[in-house]
């Protein structure tokens, strides 16, 4: 019975250097704009710490159980009487788990209420609605008019922000791994999630609940900014759309209105007031297109307009591949100018 547990024994006696480098690789491997182990938020930090403690405990317990099994298999320990062997069961099977689990459970209970606590009154509230397969985002600063945007979230650093979440069609789940846990968006219900970013930077959020054909293509960039910078940004977003500055964009606006885009999209300051799709007032200033799918630039805009259903299968928006290339380019130029 030696050979097949040799892997076990090797794991219980790792080379020191190997272990150290493995840990280094592991830690480096945890970074990323979407990693819950590279926290940039209070909740994410708390949960990542919890994970590392539990992971350490898991390794210790697994190695201990494997070692016990191994020594039992090898007959390393003198053959036990049934009475002695029963202490294995009482000690290892019953008492040890009970004690450890009680401690873990109490710790879990202790850290749960703060994670569920609402943001203090007067905090910024952002209503986010998950729709197949994009995000409607409405900033609701205390005492000011709300501002509706889409597919991108910007936050002031260091301040608790309350997200008010719902969904008009199917269940989605709002998740920014770098900042904290996820919360489902359920038709007919309103859920809430408080996040507090602890450092500035650009991160990525995704839909975590399977929501249909293009579930995989429902993401959004998250930008955490200094407070003043954030206020300035929001003020700019509040402003209506800029008028087109060059003839190409001007032509693009005409084509935009002529081809019925306004039935679904709003561009504040124009007659486009559609509510079905994302607000495009400042679409040119966003980092991505199609809810986190394409990096936003002129070419990507053309691609999105011409091959919408290829970029995002099943999407509600029809593609406009039948338009002449020049017209597509003009619309793209117009949208790009909406900063």
């Amino acid at each position: 019975m030696v050979h097949f547990l040799s892997a076990t024994s090797a794991r219980s006696r790792p080379h020191r250097a190997g272990a150290a480098s493995a840990v280094a690789v592991l830690l480096a491997g945890c970074s990323g704009p979407q990693s819950s182990l590279d926290p940039a938020g209070a909740g994410a930090r708390e949960i990542a710490d919890l994970f590392w403690w539990m992971a350490g405990g898991t390794v210790v317990v697994w190695v201990a159980v494997a070692w016990l099994t191994y020594s039992a298999v090898r007959g390393r320990v003198a053959e036990q009487t049934a009475r002695q062997a029963r202490y294995y069961i009482i000690g290892g099977g019953a008492l040890f788990p009970t004690v450890v689990l009680t401690a873990l459970l109490l710790h879990g209970f202790r850290i749960l209420p703060p994670l569920l606590a609402p943001a203090p009154p007067g905090s910024l509230r952002i209503a986010v609605s998950g729709e197949q397969w994009w995000w409607r985002v409405q900033y609701q600063p205390d005492g000011e008019e709300p501002v509706e945007l889409a597919n991108e979230i910007r936050l002031p650093v260091g301040e608790p922000v309350e997200f008010i979440l719902d969904a008009p069609d199917v269940i989605h789940s709002f998740w920014i791994p770098s900042l904290g846990g996820k919360m489902d968006m359920i038709p007919g219900r309103t859920t809430r999630l408080t996040l507090q970013a602890t450092r500035t930077g650009t991160f990525r959020g995704v839909c975590a609940e399977y929501c249909g054909e293009s579930h995989a293509l429902m993401a959004f960039p998250v930008v955490v900014m200094a407070k003043a910078e954030f206020s300035a940004w929001l003020a700019a977003q509040r402003a209506p759309a800029q008028a087109p500055a060059d003839p190409l964009a001007e032509r693009g606006r005409a084509a935009f209105l002529q081809n019925g885009c306004a039935a679904c999209h709003a561009v504040r300051g124009t007659e486009a007031r559609g509510r079905i799709g994302p607000d495009l007032t400042h679409v040119g200033g966003r980092m991505t297109l199609g809810a986190g799918v394409l990096t936003n630039n002129r070419a990507a805009l053309v691609r999105w307009l011409a091959h919408t259903d290829r970029v995002k299968p099943g999407v509600l928006m029809p593609h406009f591949g039948m338009l002449p290339a020049a017209e597509l380019d003009a619309v793209a130029a117009y949208l790009e100018s909406l900063r």
Binding site: L101, T102, L105, L106, F109, R110, L112, P113, L116, A117, P118
Partner: peptide
């Protein structure tokens, strides 16, 4: 275990 939960929760959140 279940009863311990009440020690930590004071409201419906």
């Amino acid at each position: 275990f279940a009863a311990l939960a009440v020690l930590y929760f004071h409201d419906c959140r």
